[in-house]
Amino acid sequence: MLVTPPNRLLRLVIYKNNIMDIPAYIERLEEKIGTDNLQTNYPHDQLTITVSRDKIQEALQFLRDDDEALFDHFMDLTAVDYIGKQPRFQVVIHLVSIPKSQRIRIKINIDDDSAEMPTITGIYPAADWFERECYDLYGIRFAGHPNLKRIMLYDEFEGYPLRKDYPIRKRQPRVELRKPEVRRSDETVEPPR
């Protein structure tokens, strides 16, 4: 269920897996960035919010600094390629709050044409290499990243391999590959009996 109904009572009843209450800080976040830019749901009891692309930095700043949220620990940044759907990419961020022992998942929908989103290294410095890896394997650019280069693959590699339209066996060798010859033992010396 991705669309948040306007009425709070309706929200409490309609959630798919469980009747889960929305935490107060999510409501404050919604007030801050606007209802259109935020959707909340609980797949398998894991709090997930979908934030629109231009509000992501504001939202993360709020989640890090708010007294009830206190999501100080950056855990993971990755992307999923929903090829055939619009928007095509979905960047997924996982955060942990160590003092409050809670987790959250933040998703950002990114369409194929621009494949770009603002960087979050200003708020969470740990996201540096994670964003580079996302760029390397999915081709999603992070505007404002200090050093957006390839990290897992070499610079001469063309294409973004984890996209669903990249064939798994398409290799781009760096050195010329040789054909391994079968060695025959015709040049040997007989060892003594």
Partner: peptide, 17 residues
């Protein structure tokens, strides 16, 4: 590993004994 990132045997790079 038969994919875009790996070499299928190092004998395609150097001779192996």
């Amino acid at each position: 590993y038969d994919n875009y990132a790996t070499v299928q045997g190092v004998d395609t790079i150097i001779p192996v004994d």
